[in-house]
């Protein structure tokens, strides 16, 4: 029966090797995370004696900042992993021997900034992403493979 009805594979992928890679997305995402962390830090707590409306407004604003931070930290992580797994090739390791370590640490920072939400972790992420974006430009030989 199995021989008669051989099971074929139907792909439900999204992995066309389009070859379009850029570093704007990670920079933009890391910058957004940094801004949100800064805004969260600067947001004034209304205090225990504040009115209900003030408390609701505070929690609403804070929640919005957190949502955007989480979203862009995730985008940043995804895009870093795409560059790592799809773009960077073994020959790039000759130019940047600690590439794996840098990308690994940057993706870890994406998770850390989600967990902590501090300005310090967001700054570290921004710096790590800038470093990888610079490596991308260095090995690519241009600022981006396409313009928006």
């Amino acid at each position: 029966m199995n021989k008669l009805f051989k099971t074929r594979t139907a792909e439900a992928h999204c992995d066309i090797p389009c070859g379009v890679y850029e570093n704007n997305t990670i920079k933009h995402a890391a910058e957004t995370v940094f801004k949100m962390a800064t805004k969260m830090h600067d947001l004034e707590h209304p205090g225990a004696n504040a009115s209900k409306e003030e408390k609701v407004a505070y929690h609403n604003t804070l929640s919005r900042y957190v949502i955007v931070k989480e979203e862009y930290a995730h985008i940043c992580k995804e895009q870093l992993l795409i560059l790592w797994t799809d773009y960077f090739k073994p020959e790039h390791l000759d130019q940047v021997p600690d590439l794996h370590d840098k990308v690994w640490k940057a993706t870890k920072l994406c998770s850390k900034v989600k967990r902590e939400g501090t300005v310090e972790s967001a700054t570290n992420l921004k710096n790590a992403v800038k470093e990888i974006a610079d490596i991308f430009e260095q090995v690519e030989g241009s600022t981006a493979t396409y313009e928006y």
Binding site: F5, A10, A12, C14
Partner: peptide, 26 residues
């Protein structure tokens, strides 16, 4: 044979058909 068996790989058809789902097709 006009009936075929397929195994799905990938996630583009979720939630209808998940990775690893089996279908019969004509």
């Amino acid at each position: 044979m006009c009936i075929r068996r397929y195994k799905i790989t990938g996630w583009s058809m979720t939630p209808s058909l998940r990775e690893g789902a089996r279908v019969l097709a004509s």
